[in-house]
Lab assay of single mutants.
Amino acid sequence: PDFTLHWNGITIHFKGIDEEQFRHLRELLDRGVSLEELEELAKELIK
């Protein structure tokens, strides 16, 4: 499924991740993950 997340004025689209992965990403963003960390995470998910 696809998810869209609005965070700090940025709209991020996640394609092909499951709800569990999306929930994990939201928790990280709510905790204050940096954009660099988010990019690293995205690379991991894409593999």
Score class of each variant (00 low, 15 high):
Trp7Tyr: 09
Glu44Tyr: 06
Thr4Ile: 11
Ser34Glu: 04
Thr4Gln: 04
Phe22Glu: 01
Leu29Glu: 00
Glu36Arg: 12
Thr4Asp: 02
Leu45Cys: 03
Glu44Cys: 09
Asn8Met: 08
Glu37Gln: 10
Phe22His: 01
Gly9His: 03
Phe22Tyr: 10
Phe14Val: 05
Asp30Cys: 08
Gln21Met: 13
Ile17His: 02
Gly32Cys: 06
Ile17Phe: 04
Leu45Ala: 06
Glu44Asn: 09
Glu19Gln: 13
Asn8Lys: 11
Gly32Thr: 05
Leu29Ser: 03
Asp2Ser: 14
Glu19His: 12
Glu27Asp: 13
Leu5His: 01
Trp7Thr: 02
Pro1Ala: 13
Glu44Trp: 06
Gly32Leu: 09
His13Asp: 06
Thr11Pro: 04
Arg26Ala: 05
Pro1Lys: 15
Glu36Tyr: 13
Ile12Gln: 01
Arg23His: 07
Ser34Thr: 12
Arg23Ile: 07
Lys15Glu: 09
Ala42Phe: 15
Glu39Ala: 12
Leu38Val: 14
Pro1Phe: 15
Arg23Leu: 09
Arg31Asp: 06
Glu37Asn: 05
Asp30Gln: 13
Leu41Ser: 02
Asp2Gly: 14
Asp18Asn: 15
Leu41Asn: 02
Thr11Cys: 10
Leu28Cys: 03
Asn8Phe: 06
Ala42Lys: 03
Glu39Leu: 14
His24Ala: 12
Ile46Tyr: 04
Leu28Phe: 08
Leu5Pro: 00
Arg23Lys: 11
Gly9Cys: 04
Lys47Arg: 10
Glu39Tyr: 14
Ile17Asp: 02
Ser34Ala: 07
Thr11Met: 06
Leu29Val: 07
Asn8Ile: 02
Thr11Arg: 06
Leu41Lys: 05
Gly16Val: 05
Glu39Val: 13
His6Arg: 09
Lys43Ser: 07
Thr4Gly: 01
Gly16Thr: 03
Leu35Glu: 02
Leu38Ala: 03
Thr11Tyr: 08
Lys47Pro: 11
Glu20Met: 13
Leu38Ile: 14
Ile10Asn: 07
Glu36Leu: 11
Glu39Phe: 14
Gly9Trp: 05
Phe14Thr: 01
Lys15Ser: 13
Glu20Cys: 12
Thr4His: 14
Glu20Asp: 10
Ile10Ala: 06
Gly32Glu: 03
Leu5Gln: 00
Val33Met: 13
Ile12Glu: 01
Glu27Cys: 15
Leu38Gln: 00
Glu37Ser: 07
Leu5Ala: 01
Glu19Thr: 09
Gln21Asn: 07
Ile10Leu: 09
Asn8Asp: 04
Ile12Asp: 00
Phe3Leu: 04
Asp2Trp: 14
Val33His: 08
Lys47Asp: 12
Asp2Met: 14
Asn8His: 08
Arg31Val: 07
Gly32Val: 11
His6Gln: 11
Arg23Ala: 06
Glu39Gln: 12
Leu45Gly: 03
Lys47Met: 14
Gln21Val: 13
Asn8Arg: 08
Leu25Pro: 00
Leu5Gly: 00
Gly32Arg: 03
Leu41Arg: 05
Ile17Tyr: 02
Ile46Leu: 12
Leu38Tyr: 01
Arg23Asn: 08
His6Tyr: 11
Glu37Gly: 04
Trp7Pro: 00
Val33Tyr: 14
Ser34Ile: 05
Ile10Tyr: 05
His24Pro: 01
Glu27Pro: 01
Glu20Thr: 14
Leu35Cys: 04
Ile12Arg: 01
Glu40Gly: 06
